[in-house]
């Protein structure tokens, strides 16, 4: 009986797991996770020869925290110290927006922009570069 309950709970949690996507303006077709990480940490501002504008959600947004944990592999506190060090090196963090809706509108309009959101909010006017789930 316990076994069935466990199987039910696992399958149920998989069914309701949130899915996320790293999305970009249609001018960008592909990027590796290493490139995406470098862009959001401002180690690079390009994918090949194309200038890229990374966009974050606001700092305490749960989707951003999820993105930072699973894609950048860094906690909120470690990123705070990272950006303090980057200030000394002359690098600024990516711009932030308050909602997924704002990011979606921005990415559709701005050439070379890249961001992340829940998969359910992605439409055909965005390029999906990477997908992951909780």
């Amino acid at each position: 009986m316990k076994k069935f309950i466990l199987i039910y709970l696992i399958s149920h949690s998989l069914l309701i797991a949130n899915e996320y996507a790293i999305v970009a303006n249609k001018s960008i077709h592909e990027a590796s996770l290493g490139q995406i990480k470098a862009l959001f940490l401002k180690k690079s501002s390009y994918i090949k020869n194309k200038k890229v504008v990374p966009v974050n959600l606001s700092s305490r947004n749960p989707i951003r925290i999820h993105f930072e944990k699973h894609i950048l592999h860094m906690s909120f506190n470690r990123l705070k110290s990272y950006w303090t060090k980057q200030h000394y090196l002359g690098h600024r963090p990516p711009i932030s927006m308050k909602s997924q809706k704002s990011i979606k509108t921005f990415i559709k309009k701005v050439d070379g922009s890249i961001g992340y959101m829940e998969l359910k909010n992605v439409d055909d006017e965005l390029s999906i570069l990477y997908k992951w789930s909780e």
């Binding site: 590796s32 290493g34 990480k37 470098a38 180690k43 690079s44």
Partner: peptide
């Protein structure tokens, strides 16, 4: 020269 893939 920088390369950002699986390893940097």
């Amino acid at each position: 020269y920088n390369s950002y893939n699986n390893a940097e």
